[in-house]
Structures are given as structure tokens and as C-alpha cells.
Nucleic acid binder design. Structure first.
Length: 286
DNA sequence: TCCCAGGTAGATC
DNA sequence: GATCTACATGGG
């Protein structure tokens, strides 16, 4: 299918998701001639997906899956021109980043996977986060496909996660996060954390509820709200966002939570999108 | 060996 | 309240 404002590489590799693998990358990053192929694991499916220019190809998906699973996952139903205009209107300095990273979209990920993944992400780095999630899926998920001799596994569903003890989580090299992961699973198994209920709450309410989980603070809660619950105004603040927010807007503010609120004030309902562009801005700023 | 990695909880000032 | 530090692990 033809796509605009979409780049597979930028979308997958901007740090919002971890359950994918690059199979092929062409030489150029130019929009018209870019060429990539990835394996993406989501919703108990293994997708082989490639992009060449503005042509996006779901190589092994049924039409029904494309419509019901993959178009929503990649957020392809949404018109990004208005989003971009709104962000540039809020701050003209972001125009160059938005033009360069024209193809970042915010994925609609599964709630359980998002919560678990971002607990794993704390004080870690992307290669290791991906490795841990792969190990977790291999050990407790199900085989869902094979590509060039390599097997792929679904992210474990809640009932499967519930079989994993804190000790088992430790065996997956999650370190001090093992306790947090076990607490999160308990919370989702009748401990007050319910996807439908969270979606029905206000942003503030849902964030506070998520933060009742031991090991979930403001940053992880914002990521879960943004990537796993559809709160597009959410504004996660990590070290990079902290730096860029201080540089551009509030030099004297050191509290991450206040910087998050500030971001939401500046960009409103598009806070989450702005945050993604600011993230690449910050990483290029050095 | 030391430092850092898309943080958080708990202690201390 | 703001600031400091331990927390596991792996890679540069």
C-alpha cells in the first residue's frame, strides 16, 4: 500500500518499541528511495514488512490482518499533517527535525506488553531491552513463525506471565527489575490495574493508578499511557528529553515530573508526538 | 577498571 | 521538597 508521513525504520527504531528485527537495509535514507525490511512481532503474529519509497508491503499478512491489526498498529489511519503543523506552530525551531524525521509514527502497542517492556527498559539500553524481551518470549510465549531458519515467539499473555516467579524473572537477567515485574503482573491479575478501566479514566487518574505499581514511576507510566493506552498527549521525560526541555523552554527546572507537565502545556493533545521529535532532536543535539 | 544505559525507591539533608 | 544512592547487567 502507498503511505505518506511514514518511514518504517524511523518508526521502529525511535525507541518506542522493542519487538522487531531488521532484516535488510538499503543504502539510502532518502524518502524516495529508502528500502528496508523488518520482522515485527505484535498481537501473536510475526509480520514480514518492507518499505521501498512510499510503498509499504506486508509480505505475509492476510488482507483482514492488514486492516484489523497492522494498519491500526502502525497508526496509518491517522493524518499526520495536522499534527506536524500544530507542533511547528507551537515551536518553529522544531521544523527541521520534523522534516528530517518525517516518517515517525506512534505505534499502538498492546497494553500488557508495553507495561512489561518499559519496566524492563529502566536504566538499560535498547539492545539489551530487546534481548531480554526476546528471552522472555522464547521462554514463556509461543512459537508463531520462522524466517530464514530463525524462530519467532509471541510476547507472553497475562496468564503466561502469571506463571513467572520473581526468581524466574531474575533468570532472564532482569536484575533488580524482577521484583517490579512480578508486582506489575500481580497488579494486572486483579490488583487494580485493568486496561479497560485505565482507558476510561482521565490522564491524571490513569497515571496515578499506574504509579501504584512498585517500579512504575512517572517516566514508565507516561510511556505506557502514550504507547499502550492511546493517551497521545502523554509526555515521557527521560534524560534526553530533560536536556532538550531545559535547553529550549525551562532552563531552571530540574524536576522531570514538572518538565512532563510543561511539555503537555506547550503541545497539548499532541504532546506525545512532539516528545518523539524532541527525542531525536535531543540525540542529535549532543 | 570505570562509566553509562529512554528510572525508581528509599534514605537523608 | 530537593538531592543522593543502591539497584543487576552488559557493552564500550
Amino acid at each position: 500500500m502507498q503511505v505518506k508521513d511514514f518511514n518504517l525504520k524511523q518508526t521502529l527504531e525511535c525507541g518506542q518499541c522493542f519487538n522487531f528485527e531488521q532484516i535488510y537495509s538499503g543504502a539510502s535514507d532518502e524518502p524516495e528511495i529508502c528500502e528496508y525490511k523488518y520482522i515485527v512481532v505484535h498481537a501473536k503474529r510475526m509480520l514480514v514488512v518492507s518499505q521501498k519509497g512510499t510503498e509499504l508491503c506486508f509480505e505475509n499478512a492476510t488482507d483482514e490482518d492488514i486492516r484489523k491489526i497492522w494498519v491500526p498498529y502502525f497508526d496509518l489511519d491517522r493524518d499526520y499533517s495536522e499534527i506536524k503543523e500544530s507542533i511547528i506552530k507551537a515551536d518553529e525551531r522544531l521544523r527541521p527535525v520534523i522534516e528530517e524525521y518525517y516518517g515517525i509514527r506512534i505505534l499502538n502497542q498492546e497494553f500488557v506488553e508495553t507495561l512489561i517492556s518499559f519496566i524492563i527498559s529502566q536504566n538499560s539500553n535498547i539492545p539489551r531491552i530487546k534481548k531480554t524481551i526476546r528471552a522472555l518470549s522464547e521462554r514463556y510465549g509461543n512459537e508463531i513463525g520462522e524466517y530464514e531458519g530463525k524462530k519467532y515467539y509471541s510476547f507472553p499473555e497475562l496468564s503466561e506471565l502469571d506463571k513467572i516467579s520473581e526468581e524466574n524473572f531474575r533468570e532472564l537477567k532482569t536484575g533488580f527489575r524482577a521484583l517490579y515485574l512480578r508486582c506489575a503482573v500481580d497488579a494486572m491479575k486483579g490488583g487494580g490495574i485493568n486496561e479497560a478501566a485505565l482507558k476510561g479514566m482521565s490522564f491524571q487518574e490513569a497515571k496515578e493508578r499506574l504509579c501504584t505499581i512498585k517500579g512504575v514511576g512517572d517516566k514508565v507510566a507516561n510511556c505506557v499511557l502514550l504507547f499502550g493506552l492511546g493517551f497521545r498527549g502523554a509526555f515521557p521525560v527521560d534524560v534526553w528529553i530533560k536536556r532538550v526541555m531545559q535547553k529550549l523552554y525551562v532552563p531552571d527546572e530540574a524536576r522531570a515530573e514538572r518538565l512532563s507537565e510543561k511539555g503537555m502545556e506547550i503541545f497539548g493533545e499532541y504532546g506525545g508526538y512532539a516528545q518523539q521529535y524532541l527525542f531525536v532532536f535531543a540525540r542529535n543535539m549532543r
